[in-house]
Design a protein around this nucleic acid. Sequence first.
DNA 1: TTAATTTAAATTGTGCACAATCTAATTTTG
DNA 2: CAAAATTAGATTGTGCACAATTTAAATTAA
Lengths: 148, 148
Amino acid sequence: MNNVEDNKQLKLKSQLCFPIYALARDIVAAYRPLLEALDLTYPQYLALLVLWEKEEQSVSQLGEQLDLDSGTLTPLLKRLEQKGLVNRKRSTTDERSVLISLTEAGSKLQFEAANIPSKLMEAMPVSAAELKTLQHIICKIRKNIRKI
Amino acid sequence: MNNVEDNKQLKLKSQLCFPIYALARDIVAAYRPLLEALDLTYPQYLALLVLWEKEEQSVSQLGEQLDLDSGTLTPLLKRLEQKGLVNRKRSTTDERSVLISLTEAGSKLQFEAANIPSKLMEAMPVSAAELKTLQHIICKIRKNIRKI
DNA sequence: TTAATTTAAATTGTGCACAATCTAATTTTG
DNA sequence: CAAAATTAGATTGTGCACAATTTAAATTAA
């Protein structure tokens, strides 16, 4: 007779989601030594990536690209401001929004970050084809994951 | 002439790691409504998964399987203790280690959790074959990701 | 044009993650 | 054996994530 204790689906090893959750932490850990040299955390680095593409954006524009809300971004951006990497000022045309812009230092930091992506990829032990497959499947899940 | 601003590798869209990081958050978000019914967070659910397989384990044994250290597990397990789902007691044979065991309530909770894996899989919009591929690539990365 | 609604950030509170440090128990070594 | 080294867990401090609420500004509707 099967009972719930034999439910294979409730075993950690048979979970798909645990490896994804653990991999995300592994990746942040792989970035850490590279980013420490720039005194950045991984989420801070992501915010800068977005700003290096377009150097002035509102908090909500950043949030849209990073899938993060103001509860996460406001303190993160204040820390980047403390480090002198970004400026925060209210928009004059819409006083509700706060515009984040790169400082000179924040802009220049991208030269130091230039080699991070390739260094990180060296640490990722998979072929280009596998990476592409991985990317494709993840995008598909992210696009369609059902909001329960 | 290329300059660093044209460095495609420094664009968010060309990052492999961002989707993984974002997917991990999407997955936790997908679990949330299912776990809220059991008054559990996703990491707490993972800890219980491990305990449902073997109902008494040391903190370090849990940490090994979940890839988490005592800094994360100690408070998490105290919260599970508060909810009456686990007991914590020092081992008599080695006073350094703390044994975590399921209470009656903690053990019974697995009946309520029995349908979570299948419900979650319904929310994951990918074929079984793609899941298998995903699992394979992720395991490979996790096994070999280089400690820089 | 005022009242109601919506929107953008900020704030508050909870719960991870994880580095670094500390304490106490155990094991290893000289 | 005693001193040194190792191990297990707890603690401290920082930084996300995110739900829920608040405040103020802007938009819409009556």
